[in-house]
Nucleic acid binder design. Structure first.
Length: 113
DNA sequence: TGCATGACTCGAG
DNA sequence: CCTCGAGCCATGC
């Protein structure tokens, strides 16, 4: 039997951080990587999300690239599914298919406000 | 132990 | 403003 989700520090951090992103907001791979402690490991963030099971509690759809677009990937149709999930959460897309980060980018505001 | 890989980024042209 | 290229770095074999 193959071992799917082997445990790694980055994977643990990424999953917990992504779960903090509220519906209606999005974060970038680089942003998550930075909060996870590795600002230069944006690509690894994508790799972690790619390895999540279908029934994961992690809202992976809320992570997009720095250009505000949904990163293309091998799995056909995955991009459309992600966009649909985001629109259902209230995220609006421009005609060119990008998200207005100034409007939807996640601003982690810990407690105390 | 070393090397190829990729849901990324950013700067130059 | 858009496209292209080279850097980066944790993972898996």
């Amino acid at each position: 039997m193959h071992q799917f989700a082997s445990s790694t520090p980055l994977r643990t951090a990424v999953c917990q951080l992504v779960r903090l992103i509220p519906a209606g907001s999005v974060a970038t791979y680089g942003q998550i990587a930075a909060y996870a402690g590795s600002p230069r490991a944006a690509r690894q963030v994508g790799a972690v999300l790619a390895g999540l099971p279908q029934d994961t509690p992690v809202p992976w759809q809320r992570v997009i690239n720095a250009a505000g677009a949904i990163s293309p990937r091998a799995k056909a149709g995955a991009v459309e599914i992600q966009r649909m999930l985001l629109e259902e959460e209230g995220v609006s897309f421009r005609s060119d298919g990008t998200v207005d980060l100034h409007k939807h980018l996640w601003h982690p505001e810990e407690a105390s406000h």
